[in-house]
Structure formats: C-alpha cells, structure tokens
Design a protein around this nucleic acid. Sequence first.
DNA 1: CTTATATGGTGTAAATTTTACAATAAGTAC
DNA 2: GTACTTATTGTAAAATTTACACCATATAAG
Lengths: 231, 231
Amino acid sequence: MSEIESFFKSAFSVDNVIFGFDEGELNILLIQRGAAPYKGKWALPGDLVYPNEDLDTAAERVLEQLTGLRGVYLEQVKTFGSVNRHPLGRVITVAYFSLVKVGKHAINPASFAQSARWHKLSEVKDLAFDHNEILDSCLKRLKRKVRTAPLGFELLPPKFTLSELQQLYDSVLDLPKKLDKRNFRKKILSMGFLVESDELQEGVAHRPAKLYSFDRVKYEKFLNEGYVFDL
Amino acid sequence: MSEIESFFKSAFSVDNVIFGFDEGELNILLIQRGAAPYKGKWALPGDLVYPNEDLDTAAERVLEQLTGLRGVYLEQVKTFGSVNRHPLGRVITVAYFSLVKVGKHAINPASFAQSARWHKLSEVKDLAFDHNEILDSCLKRLKRKVRTAPLGFELLPPKFTLSELQQLYDSVLDLPKKLDKRNFRKKILSMGFLVESDELQEGVAHRPAKLYSFDRVKYEKFLNEGYVFDL
DNA sequence: CTTATATGGTGTAAATTTTACAATAAGTAC
DNA sequence: GTACTTATTGTAAAATTTACACCATATAAG
C-alpha cells in the first residue's frame, strides 16, 4: 500500500451527547451496543459520517433516527482522534451535544443498537470506547454555555415554573451552594424575555406556581440592545 | 466500490492558526501555496494527519516544521467537514490555534509551501479553502479565552511592561473603547501572579517602564485559592 | 372544617466590584 | 533646560452582587 493510500485508511464518525432534564436531574440518552467491540456496553449514540454528508447533518441524522426529533439545539464540541481510540481501525469522531425535551419523543433503538434509554447522569459510568472522556468534555461545555446563552429552555417544556428553571440550573451547574431563589428570579426576570402566562402549575400538593415561557423575539431585542445573557 | 469502502475514501488534516503579537498588533503566520489547488494563495499552515499520529501531535508537528518551536500553547478549536470544502476529495480538518512569541524562531517554509510569513491580522483576506472561516472561529475563541485564562503572556517575551500587556489585550479584544489604564493595572496586579523585576525597559525615548513577568507557580496558587482569571 | 405540610412569592440593606477620571514622575531629543 | 512622551498612582460614585425571612396559597390528613 502506498503512503498516500494509507491516509485514506481511516473513517470519521459523529457521537452525540443527548442531554435531557427529568425528575430534577440531568439525564443522557445512551445506546447499548449490540455488536463487538464493546458488545453489551452502554455508549453514546453515533455513526460514521456518510461520504456525502456534512458533519452537522450527520449529527442531526443520528439524533433524528434515535428520537424522531428535528430542529433541536445541537453544538459541536470537540474532535477525538487518538490513534487507538477505536479497536477496529483509525476512526476520528466529532463530538456534539444536543438538548432535548424528555418525553416529547419515542426512542427507536433499532437503527443503532439492541436498546437505548435515558440514564441519570449521576449513574453513568464505564462507557464504551473513549465515551466517558467525550461525555466529560460535553458536560463541561454545557456548564459553561448554559451560563452565557439561554440554553436551559431547550431542556424544559414550553411552559415551566421559575422553580423548575432554577432546579435545572442547580442541577446542571452542580455548584457547592444552590442559587439563591430570590436573586435568581430577580435576575432572570430582569432580562425581560420570560413571559408570564395566566396558567398555573397543576397537580401539585401545594400552592401552584405561575407558568412562564421563553420569548425568543424578546431575547433578540435584549441582545440587540447590547445586553448579554450572563447567569 | 462497496459502501463500506467509500467510508474510507476520505482523509483528515489539521490546520493551525498561529497567532503572534508584533508592532502592537495581532499577526498570523500564513503560507503561500506552491501547488494547486489555490496555487499562489495564502493559506493556514496544515497537513494531513499521519496514520499513526494523534491529532494534537499533528498540529504540533505542523507548527514545529514551520517555526522550529516546541511546547507552545496549542488548543483545538473546531472541526470543519463540509462535503465540498476541499476540491480534490473529502477532507475534514481539525482547526487549532497556537500562540507564539514572534522573533524567537526562524520560519522554514520549504517543508510546506513556496513561502511563509507573518501577516497583520487586519490585512488578511481571501485565504485558500475555507480558511477565512477557520480563522474567524479561532479568533473568536482566542478573544474569549484570553479573558478567562492567562494566555496573553504566551504572546509576549518573558519580560514585558504593563503597557505592552494592555496593548495586547486592546488589540486582541478589539473593543470599541480601550481598557482603562489604571483599572487594568489595578486588576491584573491584584491577581498577584505578575512579578516585578528590577529591570527597566530600554531604548525608548521616554520614561522607561518596569518589566514584569508571569509567575506560573503563583498563578497555580491563585487558582487553588478558588479565584478565577477574569479580565 | 381544621390543621399540617409544602412550595410560591416577594424587598431591602450591606458588601463588593466596576467605572470614571487627572496630575505628577522620569526618562530622551533637541 | 525645555519640549515631548509615556509611566505611575488613588479616590469617589455607580452598579452589581450577596445575604437573608416571612407571609400566601394550594393539597393532604385527620
């Protein structure tokens, strides 16, 4: 094999850390591998990139095949290419993370693996390949990004309470101390892109909270006036 | 050709945005292409990744072959993989940026291209391939990173004046208003990891400034005490 | 229906950080 | 020695961040 040919003995893939928020906790969607290598192990959903497919498109495809969702938030994070990261050959993988609303979709593992399900982030361990490292990178990115862009809303239903929103931030940021309730509400409301609905929370055994929603147009105005999201 | 084979009809490369700081301005090191495609055009230095080479190693190699420098700051930024980004085939490229001290090295274009030289960032335009887009991403990353980590020092000689340091920040950040001199000095000195030397600036036609240097050990202490670099 | 329980919702004062701003000091050039 | 250029330093006002506690309103239990 000529030297130039050997450059083409490689493939590239995308892997997707799909974050969801459920039961007050950050979750990720994993597949269980149905074949070697790492048969039976949990792994990030991913696939080889098709020859005529852009990277972002491949990441969207993986997500859509698994969840049926389109148009969700997706961000490229980092590329992993250690020589021996894949037992069967040289495969470099581009890691993405996406944010989905848990429950707004059915999971279809068939196209990928023997099974797939949500895992509490706190219970994830020992993934296939270098996927623990990939997860760490994506989580770190999420923690940063969630403070500088209004991404939290991608993980919540269209209408949510301020406590749910704060719980989300507390969970994602995982700070030694929880955010202060009054200060959090003051700050997020002062930005002016959350709109109060006239609906209330239902089915709770206590005073129901008001439901709010994120107004994208108002957020654009907020940006155009020179403000920045910073939590 | 079988479908699986077609996955291997691709290659990957690294491209490196090498930043330097000279004459009060941010500069980048470009090569001039000696062969098609884009013959004669200026481009980012880069190369295919060897079959047994890690991505970071490839980026270090490109930098070392061009400048002779090792151990400089290098950071992966983003991967570009549009189907048609390379006229000769499917090549995805992992973009890195590095920070070097201009003048501490000789440039050796031979291994890459017909020539190579530093360009003022403000005068760079119309690069080969999608390299303008890559440059934009790296510059954006640098702008963010320089405020949250003590990277500026990588672009300066070991001993520098506070005015040089501020000039660097003004240049990199390119804000509508320059930083305030007194506030800048107060803030950076209060972090406690710049050490004043007993030397003075030489060869200037005005009061010479004190020279300072960055103390990496003191910076580690600063971090361990829970502070964060934030400028 | 009364009480227990749980979360929702709200304001203010102190501490800290950020901002704005100008006069003197110390060199070289002529 | 005079002109010129950049170096160096402090303070007051404004803005932001932090800390903190009580009453409201719903369901659940008795």
